[in-house]
Design a protein around this nucleic acid. Structure first.
Length: 117
DNA sequence: GCTTTGACTCTCG
DNA sequence: TCGAGAGCCAAAG
């Protein structure tokens, strides 16, 4: 099975109202490819079967979401951090809130909503 | 097949 | 405590 398939399969197990992190997801499939997890989610071909909006950053931030705007401007590593909280992120937050996940200022309380894989 | 890029994370100043 | 830089692995060009 390919890495991506494993990721999708694992992500699909996340129940409604819970979230997990890219780190945890990568760890769950015995990999350290945190970034690859994000890449796989970005190209997610199984929406909405695989709810990629339930996958967030390790610090509780929502991170990014490829709704329609993708790869705008030059995105180097440092720029990526600066533009957190734009574009499709709002949509992602809305989806999470619909599942009763508390999102405060683009952040989620991992202590309460993290799903143990 | 090598280089670049990315919805990330960790470490150091 | 916070910002910048380096490192990580896969996928796409």
């Amino acid at each position: 099975m390919k890495f991506r398939e494993k990721i999708y399969k694992t992500a699909a197990k996340i129940p409604r109202g819970k979230v997990t992190t890219y780190k945890a997801l990568a760890h769950a499939i015995n990999s350290k490819a945190y970034r690859a997890v994000g890449t796989a989610m970005n190209k997610n071909p199984h929406w909405p079967k695989v709810s990629c909006h339930r996958v967030i950053n390790s610090d509780g931030r929502v991170g990014g979401f490829a709704e329609q705007f993708r790869g705008r401007e030059k995105s180097s590593k440092s720029v990526t951090r600066a533009k957190l909280g734009v574009s499709g992120v709002k949509k992602k937050i809305a989806l999470l809130r619909k599942e009763c996940v508390e999102v405060i200022n683009g952040k989620i309380d991992l202590k309460r909503f993290r799903y143990k894989l």
